[in-house]
Design a protein around this nucleic acid. Structure first.
Lengths: 223, 223
DNA sequence: TTCCCTTTTGAATAGGTGTTCAGTTCTTCA
DNA sequence: TGAAGAACTGAACACCTATTCAAAAGGGAA
């Protein structure tokens, strides 16, 4: 054998793979999932279309990995925010507020990850990611119920409904415009309160909650 | 002029138009919006592909009309159920329950109408339809607030969030399976309660509400 | 430098679907 | 019944985009 991958080559290959994924993420952020096409992604990543296929067996694999990655980031943020909260109700509130913040910060991306059309191969990955996030929220709801802060209920349904409510209210086509930071903040607060009430948090308790939404890691400073 | 549309011909043309729309609706009901393609619709309506274009300028127009029609039916059902309720809170509950029932009865169709991918030309129509339905719900929320049954809030955001919650919890990919009529009923009840709580209905009041969800006109008897 | 293997390229291919249109059939009316 | 126009047909066309692949370029070992 007269050829072996050196460390340097391996690094370059990894960098390229990253570049392709990042290009896909950027494009999804600005144009939605529908804009994630091989040619534009390749162009943005500075490679030829064919090269993409040396890193990902198919477009579906690329998109799946993109979704998984974004969901992983989101999950980490949610857990971080919730774990930092002083109690189960605050943790739930923090988790919800974090989701809300992420959604308003990256509306196109959130829309693409959560709801936009993808082909069937991708649907499975997306489903798993959503399940993970819903599961995290559900866990927080259960904890609050155990602590006696919330009434008994179908936690799975509740978690799903919460995500749907936030999604629709914040990134769906009927979502309000966020003209400035203040409006954005108000809307996030209103949506969070709504979601908390849905699972049975009383207004009295809500007023006492400490809510600290973790800002998304990639959120642009001025946005 | 040696040819004029007789009454009989006009009737047949209208019937054909109806057949095409119905075919599209049936296909959307079973396979989602993505399955609404010209060739299958034409096949089902017993016409040639080209004929569709004598009735609808483009596929986008066909789909737009389909969505508008379904939304109109839905709106009528919601209004009917709400108007029949004894008070503003009951009316809101009835409206929500009606939406929930429709969704679980026609999951694929609901999914297609509300969230599935469509091209940009259709998006406008869909948006208008959603706005209509959200507007109806919002009106009921406002009425309940005026009656002092609900706290002051951003009604537009609330209406949007409610629809999103129901949608996600009942027809989204994480929605539970409805193995039998009983489960279905329980889930609809749970989702309705959740939605009511979200806008501030107290559990105490919720227990006293008279809820009568209008069944969708087209719902198959046994489903 | 040379050879051989890997990686990249980008134009060609392939598959799927909306749309058109020349030819056919149907309908009306003199 | 025949002429003229409307409606219908379905194969051909057009467009878009994922995927392939033969040729070219890059990189490692001798």
């Amino acid at each position: 054998m007269v050829y072996r991958r050196t460390q340097q080559v391996m690094k370059r290959l990894a960098a390229r793979r990253r570049a392709i994924l990042t290009a896909a993420r950027d494009i999804a952020s600005s144009g939605g999932m529908a804009a994630v096409q091989i040619a534009p992604v390749a162009l943005r990543a500075d490679v030829a279309a064919g090269t993409v296929y040396r890193y990902f067996p198919s477009k579906a694999d690329l998109v799946s990995e993109l979704i998984a990655e974004v969901a992983r980031d989101e999950l980490t943020a949610i857990q971080g925010a919730a774990d930092a909260a002083p109690g189960p109700s605050s943790a739930l509130a923090a988790a919800i507020a974090t989701v809300a913040m992420h959604m308003v910060s990256h509306r196109k991306l959130a829309w693409g990850i959560l709801a936009e059309p993808v082909d069937v191969d991708v649907a499975a990955t997306r489903l798993a990611s959503r399940r993970d996030i819903a599961g995290e929220i559900e866990g927080r709801i259960k904890a609050a119920i155990s602590a006696g802060h919330l009434p008994q209920q179908d936690t799975s349904l509740a978690a799903t409904a919460l995500l749907g409510a936030l999604h629709e209210a914040l990134v769906g086509p009927l979502a309000p415009d966020f003209d400035d930071q203040a409006t954005l903040c108000d809307v996030v607060k209103a949506a969070t309160l709504l979601a908390l009430r849905a699972v049975g948090v009383t207004d009295a308790r809500a007023r006492g909650l400490v809510v600290q939404a973790a800002l998304p890691a990639r959120m642009p400073a001025g946005e």
